[in-house]
Amino acid sequence: MSDEQIRHEWPLFEVFVRAKRGLNHVHVGSLRAADHEMALHHARDLYTRRNEGVSIWVVRSADVVSSGPEDKDAFFAPSGDKVYRHPTYYSIPDSVPHI
């Protein structure tokens, strides 16, 4: 057999599970499926075998657009010095209640 890479017949999907009402959907991993319906079924069987979820999202991995590590500074550093967005930046005397 040659070293030519074999590709799986089905595309990759990313799976997000909401553990219970009131929580965000959280990324839990990926799986292979031919279409979205199959991906949902597979996600249910693979990632919620132990009552872990109340809702599932699936999305084609190829459709995910993400920032790259090289964007880290341009994306996230600029918010690093805006300390005035934080409540603790402001000093209020202890005697003032409820603030």
């Binding site: 890479q5 074999i6 590709r7 799986h8 017949e9 990926s30």
Partner: peptide
């Protein structure tokens, strides 16, 4: 697969 491997190929 997050590292660029393909499951079909690994199988």
């Amino acid at each position: 697969e997050t590292l660029g491997a393909d499951r079909g190929d690994l199988t």
